[in-house]
């Protein structure tokens, strides 16, 4: 299925959960927050949340800023 992650089109297996995605992207253990279609998905729901075709995912973290 086609998913947009941080503005980039990606191909993922159907049934991929957010937890799977985090592992696929090598982001496990990192402090981050995720939105799917502009709705925040709490970390506690990553394993149960399944992505679907055309989902727009934003994965953010904290960086230096004033």
């Amino acid at each position: 299925m086609k998913i947009i992650i941080n503005g980039e089109l990606r191909e993922l297996e159907s049934g991929t959960s957010l937890e799977n995605l985090v592992q696929l992207l090598d982001l496990q253990g990192k402090r981050l927050a995720i939105e799917v279609n502009q709705a925040i998905v709490p970390r506690s729901q990553f394993a149960s949340f399944q992505l679907t075709e055309q989902d727009q995912v934003e994965i953010v973290h904290a960086i230096g800023g004033g």
Partner: peptide
């Protein structure tokens, strides 16, 4: 300390140190 919230760099070296 103020911090900004931005997209994670995907594909970056996972051992790269981060601000936190």
């Amino acid at each position: 300390i103020t911090v900004a919230i931005r997209r994670t760099n995907i594909g970056q070296n996972p051992n790269e140190p981060s601000l936190l």
